[in-house]
Amino acid sequence: MTAQAAIKDGDAGIADRRRWMGVLARAGREELEEAWTALPSKPAHRFMRAPEIGLVMVQARAGGSGNPFNLGEMTVTRCALRLDSGVVGFGYVQGRDKRRAELAAAFDALLQTPETRDEVLRGVVEKLAAAQAERRALRSRKAASTKVEFFTMVRGDNPR
């Protein structure tokens, strides 16, 4: 079964899948292990492509909006596995942690499986996404504390 077929069978939209794959890719090893351990039943799976480390060339644009150029590469680990049900899951994660890629692929497969999707979405993806949003907000609030408040040098106009 191809990935596209799996999506159709699983009735999950591409937009949904892009979102959860992005969330899984940003999750830490421990977070994923914890979520995996907490699963009531762990489905058997076989690797279609054992976790493999490689590179992605990162492109950017001249001036931020112009023509593309190659900035440099980043390490990435990818994995593809098949559940006994036949559903195929993919994991593409930044860095060189093979277990992370494997877990991301396993969750991707479970999320394409109608029987497990809602549970994994709620119990894993939403939690991970919330943690990521919180980390991002925290970083942003720290940065916001360094925002310059200009004031004009006029008597009585300065902030107290």
């Binding site: 992605v56 950017a60 990435v76």
Partner: peptide, 11 residues
Amino acid sequence: TLPRFAVSRPI
């Protein structure tokens, strides 16, 4: 020593 998997979309 590493294979290249892909080229990203421009960030």
